[in-house]
């Protein structure tokens, strides 16, 4: 995974709370067995007026002019702004693949749902929370115009074009892995011996968990 140190980009505001992963990536796209190429289907039901499916050419579908991310000023945005409980519901990682493939590198929200939050970091997307009043301020500033932000993970700071800045919190472990672009599986397998030792002892204590399924 690529290292993430800092990112400067345009903000796309999605003024909704409880945006669920069914909305981010509707069910019909979960049939695919590939891991990228989901960008045109992110927020599908909201984004297009015509129904879609894997085999429907998106260029033939009319875009919904009322959907916030379709507005011209937000095209090319790489920072998604939303409100509380972003990513609730289904564990489908396709939701994150969709947001990532749409071009977003950072999602800023008041709060995130647990599984979605993990899925973001596992795909190199920085999910960060700010205080409600800071989120409110960002919505005010980005409501009718393109706004640029700099997100610095090294300094744990979000800086506005006018110089205003907000500090954010992130667990050190996640931050370290993002900064260094570390792959979770690879880092875990560095502890292979510890896992094997644990497994041996666990099997002695609880042999009934180790009966092979047949």
């Amino acid at each position: 995974m690529a290292a993430f140190v800092a990112h400067q980009g345009w903000v796309a505001p999605m003024d909704r709370s409880n945006v669920d992963t069914d909305a981010m990536m509707p069910k019909q796209y979960l049939k695919c067995i590939f891991k990228s190429g989901y960008g045109d289907w992110a927020f599908d039901d909201w984004r297009y007026l015509d129904a879609g499916d894997v085999d429907v050419d998106v260029s033939t579908r009319r875009k919904n002019p009322d959907f916030e991310l379709n507005k011209t000023i937000y095209q090319g945005a790489s920072i998604l702004l939303s409100r509380e409980n972003f990513g609730c519901g289904s564990s489908r990682e396709h939701a994150v693949w969709g947001i990532r493939d749409m071009g977003f590198k950072v999602v800023i929200a008041t709060s995130f749902a647990d599984i979605f939050y993990n899925n973001c970091f596992n795909n190199g997307i920085l999910a960060l929370t700010l205080k409600p009043e800071q989120i409110e301020r960002l919505f005010e500033l980005s409501g009718d115009k393109a706004m640029s932000l700099t997100v610095n993970l090294q300094e744990k700071r979000v800086t506005l074009a006018n110089g205003e800045f907000y500090s954010f919190e992130l667990e050190e472990n996640r931050r370290f892995k993002m900064l260094n672009g570390l792959d979770n599986v690879a880092t875990t397998l560095l502890k292979k011996q510890a896992i094997q030792d644990f497994e041996k002892q666990h099997k002695q204590t609880h042999p009934y968990y180790f009966t092979p399924l047949r």
Partner: peptide, 20 residues
Amino acid sequence: QGIGTSEVEHVLASQCLQQQ
């Protein structure tokens, strides 16, 4: 608990999860 696909891969490869 429910996990994402990256975590499914992680458990397949290591029988473990990184968690808080």
